[in-house]
């Protein structure tokens, strides 16, 4: 495949999936203009670094990684946003089952650190498999499971505190 053919495939992918990409960007910043800026910057970054996409079958995970990193950069750059500090710690899972808390995840994820928020969005809103999330984020699948569990636990404890208050 020539570089121009690869460029065309990436371009088609970006155009076809622009709405999904916008939703993902928006869920980080909850602001239309910022989400559009993220889309613009992600496309530029992706097309400029097209050589880093070694295998075309990983196009989605490759582009998502760029989009997620750009979104997280925007959160850190934007002073108006409160960034919850990352408290990801690895610990043993009590079971293989990952219970989904009976809470409004869409609202609750704003109380998570950006990296934890990413896991919830990809797993529960984008329906990505653990293996695909691992590939997107460049992390071992077991680490993803552990971090996802930690994020769900944090959401659960946040909701419990909210109920008590």
């Amino acid at each position: 495949m020539t570089k121009s053919e690869k460029f065309q495939l990436v371009e088609n992918y970006i155009v076809e999936n622009q709405n999904a990409h916008y939703r993902l960007a928006y869920s980080y910043v909850k602001d239309k203009e910022l989400a559009l800026d993220i889309i613009q910057e992600s496309i530029m970054k992706a097309l400029k670094s097209i050589d880093s996409l070694e295998q075309i079958q990983y196009l989605k995970t490759w582009f998502y990684r760029i989009l997620i990193n750009t979104s997280i950069d925007f959160i850190h750059k934007n002073k108006r946003m409160v960034v919850v500090e990352d408290e990801i710690s690895d610990f043993h899972l009590p079971s293989n089952e990952m219970e989904i808390p009976d809470i409004d995840l869409y609202e609750a994820i704003d109380h998570l650190a950006p990296k934890q928020k990413t896991l919830i969005i990809l797993r529960f809103f984008e329906d990505m498999k653990i293996e695909d999330i691992a590939m997107t984020l460049g992390v071992n699948p077991n680490t993803i499971k552990t971090r996802l569990y930690a994020a769900l636990r944090k959401l659960r404890s946040f909701m419990e505190e909210k109920v008590k208050a």
Binding site: Q18, S27, L36, I39, I121, F124, F125
Partner: peptide
């Protein structure tokens, strides 16, 4: 929650921004 995510409004400008980029 998933529906709220899927219902995020897509602005008209998105097509233009994507094409311009």
């Amino acid at each position: 929650s998933k529906k709220q995510y899927e219902d995020i409004e897509i602005p008209d400008e998105l097509k233009h921004i994507v094409s311009k980029s």
